[in-house]
Design a protein around this nucleic acid. Structure first.
Lengths: 240, 240
DNA sequence: TAGATTGTTAATCGATTAACAATC
DNA sequence: TAGATTGTTAATCGATTAACAATC
């Protein structure tokens, strides 16, 4: 984006800001775009791994199976990251996407429920890749309390509130049985955390806490697969 | 839907079918609708659990936080499941949604990779709820081969092809390390299976096999959470 | 400069919502 | 019958794609 254009844009934003009447106006980014950002993150890492330093929207669109137009449109929600005639600098773009997604914000996280799912998550490189630090797990089973899983120790669930403060935990990952989700949710709503990644399948009532919740329903994905497979089998049959 | 209307609809479909020139014409259901079906499935189970026998689109919309209009629109993609002045019969609607999603199709599934993630999935009630039968796991580690996990036994990965035929396995769930995903994918592309639920994060090249693949990128969900949390923290700061 | 490719606007497409006649 | 609520059409909204001027 040219300097002139950028200034014009900022001026029009300033106008908008006054109209809307609040200080922190930021043109809202559509949910559709936000949901695609993690995909850009993944493909950019792939490009870096491959040693690519430069990529055009056309190339990236081929890799990702989307239109080049969409890529340019998406990225421009956050600013002009590319350069006409050249494309995008992979490292710079990656840095920007990371900034936007809060990678490197250095979030501290804890896992409640040190069963198979909790262990699988903590044992994966997922958190490290995204700059999230898992600093503790919690469980009720004496068999696991005190053990180390991945990079973190398992504490007694009764110490939850205390340890959240002690470690400065910002994000809690719920991988405990559905039956106890509500109770832990209640306790968390009174803690100074900012986000919950909820695998329990139970809707959490967190009142006015302002905690951001991301619910994961992994079974939904299985059902989509079953739907597609059922469709395929049906149409295969009809062809005969 | 009245009988007259239904006949008119079928007649117009017949016309469309001729135009399109293929036998198995079925008005395509939009991806947006399909992605919502599993949610309907979940909420209908919840209603059944609560002992409700009847529900209106207005009630359901309140529960699910969507518009009643959308619910009626969605359900009508598959036929008139409700009744004017009454609403929807919960059990009937549930049965229909299950039919559409292939629940009770009796899919047989196997898990490749009997680690924490594989164990967590097999140990959950997810498959049973959706009428999917996990009949086997596969792994390379002698420490787990021969053991029973959940309802199924762990076999040596070398027996994969053989057991797929023996058990009539239709869906394979990949929870093995990324590094071996490609190799197993290649082997599976030659097997008579219909679907792969892929947790490896590796894009699978299955050629012309016609196997349906559902890729799960659980980390994307974590990033969305981080984005929201980062947004919240930023705007909280600005308020000060 | 000529070629390439972005940023951005306008056009298209699809999905959601509103409204209401049909009908239980 | 009167009231309720669907099924369905039309209106709105948002997201994607196409096109091209700007510019590196």
């Amino acid at each position: 984006m040219s300097t002139k254009k950028r200034i014009e844009k900022e001026e029009s934003l300033e106008l908008l800001r006054r109209e809307v009447g609040r200080d922190s106006f930021r043109p809202e980014v559509s949910p559709a775009v936000i949901k695609r950002l993690p995909r850009y993150f993944r493909y950019l890492r792939e490009l870096i791994r491959m040693g690519k330093t430069r990529v055009s929207s056309a190339e990236l669109s081929k890799m990702m199976n989307v239109t080049a137009s969409q890529i340019r449109q998406d990225l421009n929600c956050f600013g002009g990251f590319g350069q006409q005639g050249y494309g995008y600098n992979v490292n710079y773009l990656y840095t920007k996407i990371c900034e936007i997604l809060g990678v490197g914000f250095g979030f501290r996280a804890a896992v409640v429920g040190a069963g198979n799912l909790g262990s699988a998550l903590v044992g994966s490189p997922m958190f490290e890749k995204r700059g999230v630090d898992v600093v503790a797990l919690f469980d009720v089973s004496p068999a696991v309390i005190g053990k180390k899983i991945g990079p973190a120790r398992v504490y007694d669930l009764s110490e939850l509130e205390e340890k959240i403060k002690e470690f400065g935990i910002e994000i809690v990952i719920l991988t405990l049985p559905k039956e106890h989700a509500e109770e832990v949710g209640m306790r968390l709503s009174a803690c100074p955390i900012h986000g919950i990644w909820n695998f329990t399948g139970k809707e959490l009532a967190l009142g006015e806490s302002g905690i951001v919740v991301e619910n994961v329903h992994i079974g939904d994905s299985l059902m989509t697969l079953c739907y597609e497979v059922a469709q395929k089998l049906t149409s295969d049959n009809e062809k005969k």
